[in-house]
Amino acid sequence: METKLHNFLNSDLLSKYILGETSHEESKEVEHFISNYPEAEKAYDELQDNLEILAKIDAVDAPNVLGDVLEALNDEPKVIQLQPKRSTPWYSIAASAAAVLFAVTSFMLYQKNQNLNAENNVVVDEIYDLRSDIEKNNSKLDELSKELMKLNNPDAKKYVFNGNDRAKDLKTVAYINPVDKTSMIDVITLPQLPKEQHYQIWAELQDKMVNLGILDESDRKLKQIPYMEDALALSIKIGTDGDDTNENNTEVAEISLKEEK
């Protein structure tokens, strides 16, 4: 035991204890020796006295240092109770670091989630647009298929309009099916007209002419026109805006339907 006491007194544990630099285990060891060994208690008191003297020297001006030191030596020893420094526990630091890491990670995950949601919304919109386009294309294909079926129907008759000298480049095709009573016309080429004029298609009946509609080259697709049961001929004429009569129209193409009746 004397050896342990000797080793203790030769160590710096007392100084560290007074300065508050010992760990919890080291503090318990120092307090054990002070409580159980007079030599350790005496050494502790002497260190406290010396620390008090040094503290007083640092607290006065230089000209009075010597007098204050002598006065301090004559006074009864006073023990300066130093509170050990409380260092921040390692688990508190770890908890703080974990909290910061958790917050940063949560923010990053939130940002990533927001970006993914935005990308998902874009994908959903694109899929919706794609489905809409597919539906429109399917609808167009259905219409085209139906039109092709009408054109390929053996009961459908094909009539080609060729323009006269007034419209040499005019070419239009009519498809008439007397069985299902449908008429369609396909505009291929129409010579350009002044703004106030347009092309009209007419059906000639036994006692009158019937206007079946306006032809426009910009509408280059099969166009449904009214089916006329007793039509003798079809003709294309140049009409004037605001004039729906047949009197002043100029005929540029005609086909006869008499042979097909």
Rank of each mutant, 00 (worst) to 15 (best):
R131H: 14
D142Q: 15
R131M: 05
D155M: 14
L141C: 09
T182D: 11
A156W: 04
K158W: 02
K158Y: 00
D133I: 09
M184A: 10
Y128K: 10
D129F: 01
L141V: 13
P154S: 07
K150T: 12
D129G: 07
Y159F: 05
M149Y: 15
I176H: 06
N153V: 07
K140Y: 03
K150L: 15
E135A: 14
I134T: 06
K168C: 10
M149I: 14
E135Q: 02
R166Q: 11
L151V: 07
N153W: 02
V173E: 03
R131W: 01
N164S: 06
S145N: 13
A174F: 04
K171Y: 01
N152L: 00
N138Q: 11
D169S: 10
K181W: 11
E135C: 08
R166H: 09
Y128T: 13
Y159T: 00
A174H: 04
D133C: 08
S139A: 11
E135N: 10
E143L: 12
I185K: 01
K171T: 03
S132Y: 02
D165I: 05
R166V: 14
K146G: 13
G163A: 06
R166F: 14
L144F: 15
L148M: 13
D180C: 11
D155P: 04
V187D: 02
N164R: 00
E135T: 11
M149Q: 13
L148N: 13
K146P: 07
N137L: 12
L141S: 09
I134L: 14
D169C: 06
I134P: 08
A156V: 14
I188Q: 08
N164D: 11
V160E: 11
E147Y: 06
N138I: 05
S183M: 09
V160P: 07
D186Q: 05
D180Y: 10
R131N: 13
L144V: 03
D165V: 11
E143T: 01
D133F: 05
A167R: 01
E147N: 14
K150H: 15
D155A: 15
K146M: 13
A174S: 06
D180G: 09
K136F: 15
N152T: 00
V173A: 07
N137T: 10
V160H: 03
K136V: 12
L148F: 11
K168R: 14
P178V: 12
K140M: 08
I185G: 02
Y128A: 15
Y175E: 04
I134D: 05
T182A: 09
I188M: 06
P178Y: 14
K171D: 03
K181L: 08
D169I: 05
K157Q: 08
L170M: 12
A167C: 04
D165R: 09
